[in-house]
Design a binder for these strands. Sequence first.
RNA 1: GUCCCCAUCGUCUAGUCAGGUCCAGGACACCGGCCUUUCACGCCGGCAGCACCGGUUCAAAUCCGGUUGGGGACGCCA
Length: 492
Amino acid sequence: MEEVRTRFPPSPSGYLHIGGARTAIFNWLFAQKTGGKLILRIEDTDAERSSEESIQGIIESLKWLGITWDEGPYFQSQFIDEHVAAAQKLVELGHAYKCFCTKDELELKREEARRTKSALQYDGTCRNLTPDEIREKEAAGTPHTIRLKVPRGEGSILFEDIVYGFIEKKYEDIEDFVVVRSNGRPLYVLSNAVDDMRDRITHVIRGQDGLANTPKQILIYKALGAPIPKFAHMSLTLDPKKAKISKRTHGELVAVHFYREHGFLPWAFVNYLALLGWSTPDSREIFSTEELIQAFSLEGISRGNAIFDVRKNDPKFFTDPKAISVNTHYLRNLPVEEIEPYIRGELEKAGIWDPEFEGAKHDWFLHTVDLIRSRYHVTSDFVTHGRAYFSDDYPIDPKALKKNILKHEELKAWFPILADRLNAIETFSIEEAEHVIRELAEELGIKAGILINGIRTAVTGVAKGPGLFDVLIATGQRRVVERLRKAVTLFE
RNA sequence: GUCCCCAUCGUCUAGUCAGGUCCAGGACACCGGCCUUUCACGCCGGCAGCACCGGUUCAAAUCCGGUUGGGGACGCCA
């Protein structure tokens, strides 16, 4: 059996967005699954729009996602001579011809076609020029493009797409398309096909927008006598208004790096993206890397376009709720050690990382992360909602302050008492701490909840969190006492 | 305008190829309940969909035709 070779060919005209990432992921999964290879090819022939910065950004995003490639990155711009040579060969073989029509002439014809509401195809003016006419125009220095000579008359291109099944396109619906510009530079449809031939690509897995190009590229393969790869077109990713996801209209929200910066675990994001337009018969949703590779198949790609449910100005969800929920799942269920590096990254970014967290306080650190993670969704929550666990410099949420502290003025007097009594505990344990607090509540003749909620707010700055006694142990006797003593200033 | 593709809950989807086991299953989101010192987690329950019309058939989400809707491609961009 022939080795599977797939490729991911981004054009470096911006960051990697979720559509591109999804294409890369599917190619990668298929290569992994079949023991094949993934080739990374940067299609940088549009010098105007390409940039080194984009190349670096795309590569970084792929690395972050954990997508590995076996060959490349190759750069399309280095193979332009090869593309032009292929075009020359096409002309020599009689499968392509020189076209001397100017852009202006063509535009006029297109205008006319629009007016008469007929198909806007090239009319083949130069298809049948005699050798003499061609020589004459060349001698006069008239610039020319090269067009592929599409078979005329009855007949069609028929191919079987792995996702969409048989696709048929009549010859008459394909115009003699340009493969080389008048300035001698090849066009995408040619370059891409020639590169795939050279890279011996066996499976072209790409967005459905490439479907319309496929018959043209098959024509090129045939004319050049090259083996035709298998094609698998994937449904597109649309926004909630069913418009194609684009950098232009959605900006950062569709950039891979946005999710990296907003506390997504890379694998969680890959897992979510894989679910957009792909599924297994049992509708399973959570997969480890190995499991996803095992479960993956091109046949599971859906034909209908999927909507990436981006939320703009939604106070509750900063992006697709499903994406967040997948991330949340991993954040809560992965072994703590596996999410540790990401939490560390967040703490470092916030400037509250303490080297002891991986030294003397390592066990404490893992325990604390584990204690609080069940209510977080993204890793950055650890430095916002969870800041007080890792730093003494934390804000007090105004709403919590009002509800749990200011509402009970007596707490101003009770906090110091609590501080003293908690400080007096010899072995600071959950049981001891609970005993002290409940005893005081009883003495005062109040509900323990008043003290509990007040303490939680003073010690963590927020009204939510794990059971208070766990919180106290995690925070530590000394810090709890300090924070309670300091809390009397909250009434000022 | 021409060509191609698609159509199941708000969203992601299973089921469609091989019609009955589907008065359509799961997940997210949402709502309610239990648990509880708070918020979560967890558990239990609920809301909600086969775009429409016709045909084939004993039987259609599934097959066929049409309508409507959506998307994509039609460039000397990639």
